[in-house]
């Protein structure tokens, strides 16, 4: 005999204990510090509202950060580009600065969801939600970006490869807020390719693979990197694959990659199919980016 909690499906959103819409970063940070674990940051809400309806999160006080001007926009700052946390995916997709300097990021956001979601969804939300199937990290990882984090205690920058801790987990502590992401602009020529496997257009990825070749000063000198989505608890980055490639081509690269990828079977795809896509996708990207080298 078993007593089971019943199967029910919520239609409503939870009642909120509070809703704040700070106008400045300082105001937001002190709110977050005051509220601690009870606070939930609300940017575009495209992940948050779903989690709230399904009662995946318990936080009851929502801090809406969309009206903080400081968190918005795309700026060139020296050798890097700063993208504010609440910059929408649509803004990134239509930015000429991104198109010319960070073409891999452009390719990645072109495959991101649909127009409705892109006009709501933010890059900060995409990073902080920490889904293994998130798109923007794949480009941001390859460019060697840094995530900028603020709290009442001060500000810090963290390499994006250290930002993700697991499925839906980041290094962020209560009271902390991501203000944006700083992306170094490659100085030489870059060849980039994003291959994304999905079940329909405008779908979440089954597997995403981003690749880039950054050319160095000397002819024949280049850096080759790959990143993978939805094949491990966090997005995976492989930097400096050029030596393996020169040693043994795609086979050698795949040896390194396969050591780290650990896809799961879920409703979207089986582990076997994901491994298959890693294999053929990696080969396709290598052919496209390095086939002529």
């Amino acid at each position: 005999m078993k007593v089971e909690s019943p199967l029910t499906f919520r239609t409503t959103l939870p009642e909120l204990e509070g809703y704040f819409r700070p106008k400045s970063l300082d105001e937001a940070l002190s709110l977050l510090s005051e509220l601690g674990e009870r606070a939930k940051i609300y940017a575009g809400g495209t992940d948050l509202l779903i989690d709230m309806r399904l009662r995946n999160i318990g936080n009851k006080v929502v801090v809406d950060i969309k009206e903080i001007n400081e968190l918005r926009g795309i700026r060139e700052e020296g050798d890097s580009i700063f993208i504010g946390a609440t910059t929408t995916i649509h803004e990134i997709k239509t930015s000429s600065l991104i198109a010319s300097r960070l073409p891999l990021l452009k390719q990645v956001v072109e495959r991101f969801a649909d127009q409705f979601i892109r006009t709501r969804a933010t890059v900060g939300g995409n990073l902080c939600n920490a889904s293994p199937a998130a798109d923007t990290p794949l480009a941001l990882l390859i460019y060697g970006s840094e995530v900028e984090i603020a709290s009442v205690a001060g500000r810090k920058r963290v390499p994006i490869k250290d930002f993700f801790k697991g499925v839906k987990r980041t290094i962020l502590a209560p009271g902390e807020l991501v203000t944006g992401v700083r992306v170094p602009v490659p100085q030489g020529r870059q060849r980039v390719k994003y291959l994304r496997f999905d079940r329909s257009s405008e779908d979440l990825m089954i597997v995403g693979i981003a690749g880039a070749v950054f050319e160095g000063r000397e002819p024949g000198d280049f850096e080759f990197s790959l990143s993978y989505g939805a094949v491990a608890p966090t997005p995976l980055l492989f930097k400096g694959l050029q030596d393996a490639y020169k040693r043994g081509g795609a086979d050698e690269v795949l040896k390194i990659v396969k050591e780290k990828v650990s896809p799961i079977s879920d409703v979207r795809a089986s582990k076997e199919y994901r491994m298959h896509l890693v294999e053929v996708g990696t080969r396709l990207i290598i052919k496209e980016l390095l086939g002529g080298v």
């Binding site: 005999m1 078993k2 007593v3 089971e4 909690s5 019943p6 029910t8 919520r10 239609t11 409503t12 009642e15």
Partner: peptide, 18 residues
């Protein structure tokens, strides 16, 4: 209200024999 109905629905306890 729908909210009350949802809340109550989660409190219904059923004993089953699979």
């Amino acid at each position: 209200t729908l909210e009350a109905a949802e809340k109550a629905a989660e409190l219904v306890r059923v004993k089953y024999e699979p």
